[in-house]
Amino acid sequence: MNLTSSGPAALKSFGGLDDLHALIDTVPDAMIVIDTTGQILSFSNGAERMFGYAETELIGENVSVLMPSPDRERHDSYLEHYIETSERRIIGIGRVTTARARDGATFPIDLSVGEVNLNERKAFVGFIRDLTDSKETEQQLHSLQADLAHVSRISSMGMMATSIAHELNQPLTAITNYTEAARDLLDEPNEESIAHVREALNECAAEAIRAGQIVQRLRSFISRGETTREIVSLARVVKEATALALINGDARDVDFEVMLDDADDRVLADPVQIQQVLVNLIRNALEAMDESTVKKLVISSHNNDDNMLTVTISDSGPGLDQHVAEHLFHPFISTKASGMGLGLSICNTIINAHNGKIWAEPSPLGGTDFHFTLISAKGDTNNG
């Protein structure tokens, strides 16, 4: 992760960068320096404020202590892979991800990692920005949020189809009635009937314009067009969606864990649409646990041996009311007193469009497990 520090023997033996530490500590963001084994060599003042650790507590410790699962368990293998192959997955490539503070809280960060040589020894420098309350969060995730908003509009189409059909049916039915009335009036034309025919035709024109306006609203609604599916890393989609869902800091007191199946990470999906599903489900879980004494949220995955992969979001909230659970994915059915009942319906529309299914059931954690399936794309590498 971050940059160097002075003082500690580990850093002095690495090149004696005491003079640089004072400069590093003027940077408000976190900067951490690690060696090729993942040991922390330097931990700036900004990092101390962000993570809640003192530098003296972490010098010589593995940097994975600052990561939530599954990155905590995988970090050393990521580092070894880079050293052996020079294949860049994070190093030199900025990304939005999540970090873990001393109190166990998980929060979204913008991480950039660079490689440096200190006295002919390789080290890695991480620059970390906490996105929780940052004004720059809007800019950092603007593109993703815009895409998610568009996906929400696109995905709502299935839910809105009945309503749109009803809207169009009204002017079309009126046009039919008016034209049939005009036809009947022309059977015995006279001055009065001709006046009624003109009136009926005027009404036909008005209803035709109304139908056109409905279609125009529909076209505006989906003006950016459909998105396409591709082979993507589920871990990366989950990581970015999690960062977005945690932006407001609602998970500060939540025990959050990600346990994804390493052996089956590739799925055939529209990443933005699946992020929309994950953001909805994570936000719902956090809100459900708002009054809970124990707050635990787990995202996991497993292969079903039918070329489908199941993703599960589990929470320790109060669970679902049975009546609501029976109609959970229908439009306008909400688990929240002030909810519109659109979020889960949108999730259902997205997952159905991916040839998957979504359902909910009681969770071993005490709350609710939301499951959805995606088509597995085993065999592709490139873990991003």
Rank of each mutant, 00 (worst) to 15 (best):
E84L: 09
S143G: 06
I83W: 07
Q140M: 15
E80G: 08
A165V: 07
G104R: 02
F127K: 05
A105W: 03
R88K: 13
A146H: 10
D130C: 00
L141D: 06
S152L: 02
S152I: 00
T162G: 12
M157C: 08
S156A: 02
H150S: 06
A161H: 03
G114V: 10
A99Y: 13
S86Y: 15
D110S: 08
Q139N: 15
A161P: 09
R89W: 10
L131N: 03
S134A: 09
M157S: 11
T162S: 08
F124G: 03
M159W: 01
H166Y: 15
I83E: 11
D133W: 11
I91P: 04
E167N: 12
H81Y: 12
D133N: 13
F107G: 03
A101P: 01
V151W: 03
Q139V: 14
E138N: 12
D147G: 08
S86V: 13
V151Q: 04
R102N: 13
E80L: 11
R129H: 05
F107V: 02
F127I: 11
E73F: 14
R129L: 01
E84H: 05
D103G: 02
E136G: 13
Q145T: 11
S156Q: 01
Q139Y: 14
R102C: 13
T162K: 15
D147N: 07
D76A: 15
M160H: 08
E138S: 15
S155E: 02
G104Q: 02
D130L: 00
V116W: 04
G92N: 00
V125I: 06
I154N: 02
T97R: 06
E80P: 11
E136I: 12
G114K: 11
D147L: 05
S143F: 03
A105D: 01
H150K: 06
I93C: 10
D130R: 00
F124P: 08
A123R: 01
D147Q: 05
E73A: 13
R153Y: 00
M160L: 13
A149T: 07
F107I: 00
K135P: 11
E84S: 12
L131H: 03
F127C: 08
T137L: 12
S143P: 01
R88E: 11
F107Q: 01
T137V: 09
V151H: 02
G94M: 07
R74L: 14
A165P: 00
E120W: 08
E84D: 10
S112N: 12
L111V: 10
I109L: 06
D76P: 13
V96F: 02
D110V: 07
A101Y: 03
L79G: 06
H142M: 14
G158R: 00
A165N: 05
I83H: 10
